[in-house]
Nucleic acid binder design. Sequence first.
DNA 1: CATAAACCTGAACATCTGGTCAAAATTATC
DNA 2: GATAATTTTGACCAGATGTTCAGGTTTATG
Lengths: 215, 215
Amino acid sequence: MTDLCEPTRSRKPSAPRRATLPQILNAAEWTFGTRGLKGTRVEEIAGLCGIPKANILYYFHSKEALYQATLARLLDIWLADADEWLSPERDPMEGMEGYIRAKMAFSRTRPEGSRLFAQELLSGGQMIQGFLKETLRAHVERHAEIFLAWQAKGLMRVIDPTHFMCLLWSGTQAYADMQVQFEALLDRESLLDTDYEAGIETFLTLIRPLFVQLG
Amino acid sequence: MTDLCEPTRSRKPSAPRRATLPQILNAAEWTFGTRGLKGTRVEEIAGLCGIPKANILYYFHSKEALYQATLARLLDIWLADADEWLSPERDPMEGMEGYIRAKMAFSRTRPEGSRLFAQELLSGGQMIQGFLKETLRAHVERHAEIFLAWQAKGLMRVIDPTHFMCLLWSGTQAYADMQVQFEALLDRESLLDTDYEAGIETFLTLIRPLFVQLG
DNA sequence: CATAAACCTGAACATCTGGTCAAAATTATC
DNA sequence: GATAATTTTGACCAGATGTTCAGGTTTATG
């Protein structure tokens, strides 16, 4: 997660490095996300950065290393939202809405990241086995416990917390991964803010009954 | 959709053709679904069929042509389930359950097909523009009208039919596309029948309140 | 069974692309 | 400002892989 990059770091990160590295990673996120690992040409990433291919291979020993670094940077950012909104103290329905909105915002503002992750899952997720089986698993289990606690207190109807969590995840993710499908179905050049809003509203309509006063 | 294949068909389909073609398409569905268009080597498909690479290029002029044919065959099968279960006559909740079960069964028994479609969407869906904007769009609109009719009759709570439809789609699709993620989260070597059943149950729990007697 | 169409396949080809390298240019540090 | 580390870059290489092709084999049809 830290430095998959070159120098032995006998100095602090130099100016050109600070400028070039993020640029490469951004371009890589876009390209890997829309073309996949195999479909991506290092030269295309280079082109997006306006630098020669060899320069990228200087910072990252291989295309695959760049892929992993791109993925790693993404996963780091990934989990914060959920922890902020889904906490035991917060009001359940308020937390759910916050989480869904945050996740949906991610799909809207950074769709390539979503797609990169999806690409990786589709092709078997070899590169993120560790993340899936440790970090993400712990993450989901933590939230599952929150749901179970809510259910025990009568604040939430009984529902399998893990599958429910996955349903939230996939439903929001879909607005990035299946963006073209939504555009076709809604007859849009590109999705509007109101479309994402309608998606959120649909979700909330479905979820609200889980949290109505039960007794 | 019909014949993207070779001969001028001055005879009826020959025996070797009837034997080889489906074999190729099956192998192609698996390979394209897990490796993507670029990631797939024609030779791997050939290997799965136990025939030489050149034989595949005899039936399909190019890798891309085979990709399109594979996709086309998939899309043909795709829409039948929905039409069977979501019809105006049928009891709403019964239809919903039937549809979800059918869609989930597809994700379980033919995950590579699901993944192939997802791959195509992720990379922009260039190959299936027509399908998305015409066939699928009409399909979804038809079902949206059924939902609206139910809502007008007071048989279903008000919810955006298109977004709701997409949510059903993506949630069931996820059990194929994000299979590795589910396996990691549920700590399974591979998903069990009970896992898919739990997924269905979670879905139904969420959907049922839409169809309770309203008045 | 003749014969034309369809099918099969090994070998060769052309291209694309990830990666290397050495030499030049730039930057950080004393 | 000297100098050592870092960065940049074009040219080149090697392997992978889609595609062609010619010649041989099998199959359908009369």
